[in-house]
């Protein structure tokens, strides 16, 4: 494993996407403040915008850094550098996930802070965290699909499916009594069920990432 090369690739991707990350972070913060404005309409607009920003950033960064890079032959330029497939995949899984996580952390931290200090019920916190983590799982999965398939159509279709699944996930979580019954309460209830869901989500992110590295590392050549 060529760690200096992996660092150089991650830094390169950070330089390519940092202004988008800043823009998404600003949009996410703006959406969060809309949610805590004293208006139901503003709350719902803010909520939709927040989810849109998190999912949009995820899709943009994942597709652009992996599939578009390949499609536009910039990968050919990278392949000529002193690295192997494993180095490249590590930079794209861990690196791009870390880059996306910058805006994810900023937005989710702002959301948690906003729920805590605003008139919004603290009971929303577990739901907010669980759903935000689901988007992080989807990001890891989308990156994995992009890396393993290398196909733009497959990755875009996967993105659509993952977006649809997010809605299913949202409603499913709301139907879990430990989460749904406490949504509008004054206290954030982090029940064992909530912790289990969070744990499963974290395990999924780690498994998807390591699995992708493991599968791709068996490939000795880029082509």
């Amino acid at each position: 494993m060529n760690i200096p090369m992996i660092k150089a690739l991650v830094k390169k991707d950070w330089m390519l996407y940092r202004r988008y990350i800043v823009a998404y972070s600003v949009l996410g913060i703006a959406a969060t403040f809309l949610m805590i404005a004293p208006s139901v309409v503003a709350y719902y607009i803010g909520q939709v915008l927040l989810v849109t920003v998190l999912i949009g950033a995820s899709a943009h960064i994942s597709i652009s850094s992996v599939v578009t890079e390949k499609k536009e032959d910039q990968l050919s330029f990278i392949m000529g550098l002193p690295l192997n497939v494993t180095d490249y995949v590590i930079s794209k899984t861990l690196g791009v996930l870390a880059i996306y996580s910058v805006c994810w952390v900023v937005i989710v931290a702002t959301l948690v802070f906003a729920i805590d200090i605003s008139g919004l019920s603290d009971g929303l916190l577990p739901m907010a965290i669980v759903c935000s983590l689901e988007i992080l799982v989807a990001t890891a999965l989308l990156l994995s699909i992009g890396i393993l398939s290398g196909s733009e159509p497959i990755t875009i279709v996967s993105m659509v499916v993952l977006n649809l699944f997010f809605n299913v996930f949202l409603f499913s979580m709301a139907r879990i009594p430990d989460i749904g019954n406490n949504l509008w309460g004054d206290v954030a209830v982090f029940s064992p069920t909530v912790f289990k869901i969070i744990a499963v989500e974290i395990v999924l992110i780690v498994s998807i990432t390591l699995g992708t590295i493991g599968i791709k590392s068996r490939q000795q050549c880029f082509m």
Partner: peptide
């Protein structure tokens, strides 16, 4: 090759017609 590709590519300059640089960045970058 390809076993030693990392070490070899440290000493080899490779350029191909199909290679593309990042359009949104300048040469200095």
């Amino acid at each position: 090759m390809p076993e030693m590709q990392t070490q070899v590519k440290q000493r080899v300059g490779f350029s191909s017609e199909e290679m593309k640089l990042y359009g949104s960045k300048n040469l200095g970058w």
